[in-house]
Design a binder for these strands. Structure first.
Lengths: 189, 189
DNA sequence: AATATAAACGGAGTCGGCTCCACTTGTCAA
DNA sequence: TTGACAAGTGGAGCCGACTCCGTTTATATT
């Protein structure tokens, strides 16, 4: 990779982060980002095939931070299995709310999501949820556990928001419902 | 409503259905539809605020057909509860595959989805799944049952496709995983 | 039938995502 | 150092979703 190309990549990311901080993601156009980075639209698009991909790259660090935070928490906690599940879920929901717009933009991009699902980071995310689901679920084959973690992440996507839309379903209700669903009686903690 | 306005509404729907049959939904532009219907873009957009809304209207009849079909099946079946659950889910997945493109377009429109969730039709859809989930789940409060039905629908949305992306998860696997999750031992059938 | 008017029309125009390609520049071999 | 060329650039331009508004028309009233 040429040195100037690397510099441009950095400039894009910095510009995008700044713009996304000062305006809503939707109202920031790709042209705005290119201009702020001091480059042309063509260059922007050679680095990122579409807006969703750029949003994903901007968010990567935050997603990784969530995963790391969850690992730290799980490494040192003495909470019950249920409390761990609820704790991790709560943090995930908080993270999602903080990055609502970026995540919505990412999740609307079908091709971007397809590659994201293949990524190591997404597998780490799944692994975190598998870890907290495992003690709740009795003895489950690994594939089944993975399925449940995957399902959880799918239903919490921004375009779903089962719990937000269903008027009057609070986060506490969501947690309670999910716990009840995932817990096999007699096997927790 | 003026008579000519009603006629235009009909023409739009007919034109849209025809075009969606002969090309992919994505490649049909709103202008194409307007032209085929013999009206201007302005008129099209007065009837449907966006493409997603039009796609939803085109799909309404199919969704209703699925609901009716499921009701008919449930009214006359003697299958076990598990078989009923799998039967209804299978038909739903088949319906979704048949209308993949339309549903994807609908589900990408956040505002359209928000109103769809409020609609009677969506409530009917939820009710169908509540009906097949109920005998699997032991005694659940109505709210909890509704939550699970909602969750199911959310995870099966086109932009999720948990099962398709997770390479090598067949429809049979999906059914098996969901059954295992939803069945409370000792209460099925 | 004539008229007033609200309802509806349609197409020119805006805006944003994205592409294409003629041009520039960093790099490396000689 | 210089020349060749792959790598990279940037902006004009396309296309499609969606809006705005001056014009037309159905219909209710007289």
């Amino acid at each position: 990779m040429r040195k100037d190309a690397q510099q441009n990549r950095d400039k894009i990311l910095t510009a995008a982060v700044h713009l996304f901080e000062s305006q809503s993601v939707e109202t920031v156009s790709m042209k705005d980002i290119a201009t702020a980075a001091g480059i042309g639209p063509g260059t922007l698009y050679r680095n990122y095939p579409n807006k969703s991909a750029l949003c994903l790259d901007v968010s990567l660090v935050d997603i990784q931070a969530f995963v790391d935070d969850a690992h730290d928490y799980l490494a040192q906690t003495t909470d019950t299995a249920i409390a761990q599940f609820e704790q991790v879920l709560t943090r995930y929901l908080q993270f999602r709310e903080r990055r609502l717009q970026l995540l919505a933009s990412i999740e609307n991009g079908a091709t971007v999501m397809a590659t994201y699902y293949q990524s190591d980071l997404y597998q780490q995310l799944v692994a975190v949820f598998m870890q907290v689901l495992k003690p709740l679920s009795g003895d489950l084959k690994i594939g089944e556990l993975k399925f449940r973690a995957d399902m959880l992440l799918a239903m919490l996507k921004s375009n779903s928001y089962a719990y937000q839309r269903q008027q009057g379903l609070t986060r506490a209700d969501l947690l309670a419902n999910l716990s009840r669903l995932m817990i096999k009686k007699g096997t927790q903690n």
